[in-house]
Structure formats: structure tokens, C-alpha cells
Amino acid sequence: MTAQTVAEPKTYATALDSPTRFHHLLSAEWIKLWSLRSTYWVLGIGPLAVIGINVNSALSNADRLAHQPELPPAPPPGRPELPQMLFDPLASAFVDPAWQLLMIIAGSVGALAVFGEYTSGLIRTTFAAVPARRAVMTAKVAVMATVMLVLGTVTAGASFGVTQAILQDHHGMSIGDPGALRAVAASALLAPLCALVGMALGALIRHAAGTVVAVVGVLLLLPTLFMGETYRWVKEIGNAMPLTAWRALVQNPGRDYSVDKYPVSVTEGWIVFGAWSLVAAAVAVAVVHHRDV
């Protein structure tokens, strides 16, 4: 009987150390995310609002273009300013305010996934059950990034498909046209990027109002402080912001008439996306390990 008593703890310890444990953490974080009623509302209504803004833009442009003469495809000699007047169908799928709304939604949901557990006290129970804080946060990051990637892909794909169908009589684009797939991919990846930034800020601030304000400030307000081109270093800081990088990635290469003195290249845009995502995930994982609950 003594041998059986000793054997049982050994079997339990082995089960805890098994490779399937991280799978259990992923399942737990998945349940936590969808146990909140607000998750369904935000992730359901938010993308519809984003798509609706883009569709409204496409409908307005289609109505306007139907009642005006079509502009020539190339500028006449001595009129280099005319291409700036040409209609860009890709812009209707990626209207700035719509995707700024998606950034706020994704960042806020990511932040809520972290500070929500701290404000409710659930984080104490979580860490008591699983002392490996880094593993818990890594699972949370993985679940959030996956959910937001799916959300961003559906939103970007639907926005592009519906708007270009509306504009099919006005040079609407297909996914195979230059710049189209890149714009859809960048918009899809914008959602997980902003969610990870929200998680990092939530882990640092751990306060609901403060974190949401910080999400809006970092993702939307901070880039506006570095828009000037008088000093190159100011503009380069602005170019390193996710919003600026996204704008560069969704530009139509056939209608790129930017007059920026220090523009963001496509390669630089992807680097910004990757760097922000990796740093935000690392901060979220590291902070919970070094700070007490």
C-alpha cells in the first residue's frame, strides 16, 4: 500500500511534465477568450463596421464616377499633376478610418485579455494552477494572434472582394493585380499586430482605462507626432509606426503619386510589421514573469 501511495504522485508529476501540457494551456486560453460575452459582440460587430465603411466608400465612388467623364489613363504632355486625379479602386477597400477602427478593436481586445484577468483577480488562480507564467502568457499570445489573424483575413478579404465587385465597371481590381494581394495581406496582419501591442500594454499598465488610452495613443496618436519632413529623424520615427507602414503596404503601385520626401518602402513596411509583433509578444511574456501579481 505504501508503494502505491508513492507511485501515484510520480505518475501525476509525469503528467504535468508531458508535452501535451502546452496544449492544455492553449485550450484554457481559448475558453477564457470566448467565455466573455463582449468578445462575440466586439469581434462580430467590429469587422462588419469596417467592411461597411469600405463598402460605403466604394458605393459613393461608383455613383460619382458614373456621372462624370472618365479621366484619361495617362497625363497629357505638360500636365504631370493630372494622375493625382485618377481614381484608385484599391483605396476604396482600405479606407483609413475603417482600418484605424480595426486597430482600436484589435488592440483593445488584446489588452482586455491581459488586464481583464488582473482586475478580476483570475490571474492569481491561473498562476497558482500553472506557476510557469511565461508558458501561460505564450499560450495567451498564440491564441490571440491566431484569432486576430483569422479576423483580419476575413475582414480584409471581404472588404477587397465586395468593394472591387461594386467598382467592376470602374476598373475594379482582382486579387492578382499588382499590389492587391500585398494590401490584403498587410491589412489581415494588422489585426494580430495591434492585438499583440494591446497585450504588451495591458501587461505593463494593468488598468482598464489606462491601457485603452495607451492603445489609442501608441497606435493612432503617436504616428501623427512624427509626420513632419523638416527633419529626417522625425520622419523616420514616424515611418517606424505600424499605421504608417500599413499605409505604405496598401498603396496601389500603379497609382503611387506620393510626394513624401522620405517614403516607406515595401520592405521597410514588412520589417516594421515583424519588429512590432515580435517585440510586443516578447514584452507581454517577459513582464508577467518579472512583475508580481
Results as ranks from 00 to 15, higher is better:
150 V>Q: 09
150 V>E: 06
150 V>W: 02
151 L>H: 07
151 L>G: 01
153 T>D: 04
154 V>F: 12
154 V>L: 15
155 T>M: 01
155 T>F: 02
158 A>K: 11
158 A>R: 11
159 S>A: 14
161 G>E: 14
161 G>N: 07
161 G>Y: 08
162 V>M: 04
162 V>D: 03
162 V>I: 15
164 Q>H: 05
165 A>L: 11
166 I>E: 02
167 L>N: 00
172 G>V: 04
173 M>D: 01
174 S>I: 11
175 I>G: 02
176 G>I: 03
176 G>F: 04
177 D>N: 02
178 P>C: 01
178 P>L: 07
179 G>Q: 02
180 A>L: 09
180 A>D: 05
183 A>Y: 00
183 A>I: 05
184 V>Q: 03
186 A>F: 00
186 A>D: 05
187 S>M: 11
187 S>E: 12
188 A>V: 05
188 A>D: 10
188 A>C: 03
190 L>Q: 13
191 A>G: 04
191 A>I: 05
192 P>Y: 04
193 L>T: 04
194 C>H: 10
195 A>L: 03
197 V>P: 01
197 V>N: 10
198 G>P: 00
198 G>F: 08
198 G>I: 07
201 L>V: 05
202 G>F: 02
203 A>N: 11
205 I>L: 15
206 R>K: 15
206 R>F: 14
207 H>A: 14
207 H>P: 09
210 G>L: 10
210 G>C: 08
211 T>Y: 11
211 T>M: 10
212 V>W: 10
212 V>Q: 07
213 V>A: 13
213 V>T: 13
214 A>E: 08
215 V>E: 09
215 V>S: 06
215 V>K: 11
215 V>N: 10
215 V>Q: 09
216 V>F: 15
217 G>K: 14
217 G>R: 13
217 G>Y: 15
217 G>E: 14
218 V>E: 00
218 V>H: 00
218 V>G: 02
218 V>I: 12
218 V>F: 06
219 L>A: 03
220 L>N: 06
220 L>D: 02
222 L>W: 13
222 L>I: 03
223 P>A: 05
225 L>T: 09
227 M>T: 13
227 M>N: 14
228 G>P: 09
230 T>D: 14
231 Y>W: 12
231 Y>C: 09
232 R>S: 01
233 W>L: 12
233 W>P: 06
235 K>P: 09
235 K>D: 14
236 E>Q: 15
237 I>E: 13
238 G>N: 15
239 N>Q: 15
239 N>L: 15
240 A>C: 14
240 A>I: 11
241 M>N: 08
241 M>P: 09
241 M>Q: 10
242 P>S: 13
242 P>V: 10
242 P>I: 13
243 L>I: 07
244 T>F: 07
244 T>L: 08
245 A>V: 10
245 A>T: 03
246 W>H: 08
247 R>T: 12
248 A>K: 02
248 A>I: 09
249 L>P: 00
249 L>D: 00
250 V>S: 03
250 V>E: 04
251 Q>A: 09
254 G>V: 00
255 R>P: 02
255 R>M: 10
256 D>Y: 00
257 Y>G: 04
258 S>Q: 11
260 D>A: 14
262 Y>E: 01
262 Y>R: 07
263 P>R: 03
263 P>S: 06
264 V>D: 10
264 V>C: 07
266 V>A: 15
266 V>T: 15
268 E>K: 13
269 G>W: 14
270 W>R: 08
270 W>E: 07
270 W>M: 10
